[in-house]
Amino acid sequence: MPKKTYRQAINEAIASEMRRDHRVIVLGEDNAGGKGAPGEPDAWGGVLGVTKGLLPEFGEDRVLDTPISESAFIGAAVGAAATGLRPVAELMFVDFMGVCFDQIFNQAAKFRYMFGGKAVTPVVIRTMYGGGFRAASQHSQCLYPLFTHIPGLKVVVPSSPYEAKGLMIQAIRDDDPVIFFEHKVLYDVEEDVPDEAYTIPFGEANVTREGRDVTIVAFGRMVGFANTAADELKRDGISVTVIDPRTTSPLDSETILDSVSETGRLVVVDEAHPRCSMAADIARLVAEEAFHDLKAPIRTITAPHTPVPFSPALEDIYIPSVAKIKAAVQALAAKVPA
């Protein structure tokens, strides 16, 4: 099977849906790049090249560059979705949500409910997130908890190239507004990805490792970290289940609760801040629904309650690590059931 990067997998998913459905269009800042400039067209294909090649294949009617004007073009994507298109808009870095959030959380998210179930808004908003690029406080955040908080939005956090392709195709075919979080550090990660189209349903967690002793729930880039930790811990005789929820909204709570009922121990790993986060949300879920299954306290491994720092020396300790995950699992596994 051909190996593809996360970047290629997303590109391939968008291109195949554009071929399948003429209502699918792409818009965003420099999604082609070079518009109106003297140099070559499709100069960038997105700031990190994810949409490269779409312009030559689909033309300017379907691959629209925008002014740097997130309120206007994210809102336009929402309006186009409400009137019959299936736009895939790019909010370059999720940190920029601050200048257009109204169009997402007050407009797109609420149309269906406010209008009594009569609106359909099939917009996909792609956005980059996550630390590791030394991009500092306004280009590195993991803001999916903020979107997860809003009823009416679906929030997707793919952890690998295979996952990204299937989830992107599902996102484009989905009739609800979808926020699709792409971790910039994952763009060059490669794995086997089928050439054919396929969809991965939302709200269905992936179980990437199956074990008996401890359950780890991890999101996005942290899934790979959790897998590494699980593989290393297995050598030490600790058997770990790793759950990748894939989507934070909807959330597959059943898979998490089933696993905790078997292991009795839970570690949640999240690159986002600790407060009002997915880690807090899942800890709440398990405390409420599976309290009596627990053999040890729930542990969360998250970034600290600080902005993302710039200096590599600081950013490296800001982001959760395999070592921290292992230490948390080992500490839990050592606890003797009461």
């Binding site: 299937g166 089928p194 054919e196 189209a197 396929y198 969809t199 991965i200 992936n206 990437t208 199956e210």
Partner: peptide, 17 residues
């Protein structure tokens, strides 16, 4: 029946067609 077997079947069944 391992996790990889299940995942393999799920991946197969998701393919278009």
């Amino acid at each position: 029946v391992s996790a990889a077997m299940i995942e393999g079947i799920q991946r197969y069944k998701r393919l278009e067609g």
